[in-house]
Write a protein that binds this DNA or RNA. Structure first.
Lengths: 169, 169
DNA sequence: CCTAACCCGACCTTCCTGGTAGGATTTGTC
DNA sequence: GACAAATCCTACCAGGAAGGTCGGGTTAGG
């Protein structure tokens, strides 16, 4: 697998936020219920997005999260980068700023790294795909067949088993 | 990380075979020594390549492996596919031949999968990058000395450093 | 018949992923 | 002011896969 579930959950979370109007913050619980994801785990995911400046938050009652920018201006490479830490096809490509030796398997001296060209191209292909996709596109794609976004105002505070009922089938 | 070390080792192995003349098979031990990789592990790696029909082998004394086709005719998507099993950015995209639905986190009924569009594009970007690279290119690239490869390497139009982020722990 | 090599499957250990637990803090509402 | 709803933070943990190792079997040249 290429991306972890943090990326999957984080993108879903961003899409969910993109469906809301930013005036009213959306609580994590609403998102967790809508997507069927564990709330405690989502907290860790959204923390990465917040630290990356992609979402903003308000604490306390009626707090929640919202996009820090309009969805049209959020390219998905930022999102995935924030969630995954780095977009690297291979160990050697994770160059943190420290100076540690990254490519452990050097061939004979004088020869270049046999795989560098390949992974560089792959990385480029991935990043270009992500850059060329905006959050707004995903929101539109996800909402195409669907009903209204979950309104914070109209939301029934009690149990709303609609989603889980359909998920079982 | 996107690809496992099996992919790294397998590609190196293929490059090494591409450097040899196919008339004489190359023993795994020679490759293991040249690349500094554990022989026993390479055996597992090369088995995948053999089962995929990318290399051929001869047993017994003076046996070894060689490319089943010229390096110019081997696209790297075949190689990586053989080594990794499948090139899938997310769980949902690993479709074994059965047609079961693997996406466990369906949103509300009537809505499409929010992330499908994104991962489809990413997968396309990866596969295209791999298809457009032949083993022969890697052989040539590895044989070169200094880092002249600016003309060869695809340019990533990213303005910011791509894999520079720390892995947020 | 011995040795170099391929072939095969079982095992093992470490690390990361995915998730839980439990609390501390902030803030609107009654 | 008490309470509840929510964000925030850190530690912990179980399972599985990654990345190997090991031991042996089979094939073929000298």
């Amino acid at each position: 697998m290429i991306f972890s579930s943090k990326a999957e959950y984080g993108v879903r979370l961003m899409v969910e936020l993109g469906r809301q109007r930013p005036e009213q913050p959306t609580s994590l619980k609403a998102i967790a219920d809508a997507e069927g994801l564990p709330l405690a785990y989502l907290e860790q995911v959204v923390a990465k997005l917040r630290r990356a400046g992609l979402v903003m938050s308000a604490r306390g009652a009626h707090g929640g999260y919202w996009l820090s920018r309009p969805a049209e201006e959020i390219a998905m490479d930022e999102v995935v980068q924030a969630l995954e830490g780095s977009i690297a096809p291979m160990e050697c490509f994770v160059h943190d700023n420290t100076e540690r030796v990254l490519c452990s398997h050097q061939p004979d001296a004088g020869r270049g790294c046999a795989t560098k060209l390949l992974w560089t191209r792959v990385q480029g292909g991935i990043i270009r795909s992500l850059q060329n996709t905006t959050l707004a596109e995903l929101v539109q794609f996800a909402g195409r067949h669907g009903p209204e976004p979950v309104s914070v105002v109209e939301r029934v505070p009690a149990a709303e088993p609609v989603a889980s009922a359909f998920r079982a089938a």
